[in-house]
Amino acid sequence: MNSRHDHCSEQDAQTIKACCADIYQSDWAKLMLGDSFHPGGTVLTGHLGNALQLGPAHRVLDVAAGPGTSALYLAQRFGCRVVGIDYSHAMVDSVTQAAQAAGVAHLVTFVQGDAECLPMPAASFDAVICECAFCTFPDKTVAAAEFARVLKGGGVVGLSDLTRRGGIPLELQSLLAWIACIADAQPLENYIHYLTEAGLTVQRVEPHDYALSEMVRAIQTRLLGTELLVKLKKISLPDTVDFEQAKRLAQAAAAAIQAQQFGYVLLTASKS
């Protein structure tokens, strides 16, 4: 049941992690994705928080916290204490400043770390969330086991991610597609398997395909607008930014979503 990349070489795994970190901490990612790096934005994050029944007494781990939007939002809305972990040192430094600016540094902290080797003791969190990032982890079996390890008994996991039906089109198997959470999107039953194999009991499965469609449309619009601004010399981006490749990827993703090859799902699971 493991994904075809669960057994990739250590060098390949580190390359994937480093590339994801580099892209997601860049201005290019912020231009394309806005403040929230996952479908549904803070609306779906709030829905996930409600599903997990978060409150001021809870300590939450946000895995692959990215720009910290979800961690800050959860602390502000539910009053819970949140630790955000991200692979990128630069991202952690940036979001730590954002927590201070938002006035929630007493509730939210960020640390650098790897989802497949969480630098936290066992049974130290009431909840773990991971939004649109699990499918980018090279070893998903180990990542799920780490989620379960750091959870207290009775704790809960909230996971939202891309799903696929059938194979992945060839044009969506590049490294860029992996970073965009497409190339290793899993069938729904695989996500359930990873969680149950880690000793968790799946409680809720909700489709949110609309959120994925809306995000891809927004990215296509931003791509066209950003390309125009670059041509007009209103903004500058690194020479490594390939608009044609990005537009082809977005177009292929939109077609696959319309054909219902890809979707977006929210799952919750508990540790007995």
Rank of each mutant, 00 (worst) to 15 (best):
A13W: 13
R81M: 02
E10H: 04
E197W: 11
I219Q: 03
R222C: 01
N190M: 10
G158F: 02
N2G: 11
D161W: 04
F37H: 02
D6P: 02
L228N: 04
A115G: 15
V202G: 10
L159H: 09
A177L: 05
A259R: 11
S26M: 09
L200H: 11
P138R: 14
K152C: 03
I85A: 10
V43F: 08
C181Q: 10
F243G: 01
F37K: 08
M215K: 07
A122Q: 08
T109H: 08
K140Q: 12
V43C: 07
A102T: 07
L195K: 13
K234E: 06
Y87D: 11
V82K: 05
H106T: 13
A105I: 04
K247E: 04
M215S: 04
P187L: 08
P207R: 11
Y191G: 07
L249Y: 00
A183I: 02
V156R: 14
A255K: 12
A183C: 14
A133D: 06
Y191P: 10
P56E: 15
E146Y: 01
C80K: 01
Q97K: 15
A13Y: 13
C8R: 12
Q186P: 02
E206V: 14
I179G: 05
Q53C: 12
L61F: 05
L237V: 06
P39C: 07
L228E: 15
D35F: 10
M32I: 00
L54Y: 15
V202Q: 09
P169N: 12
A18C: 04
Y264P: 03
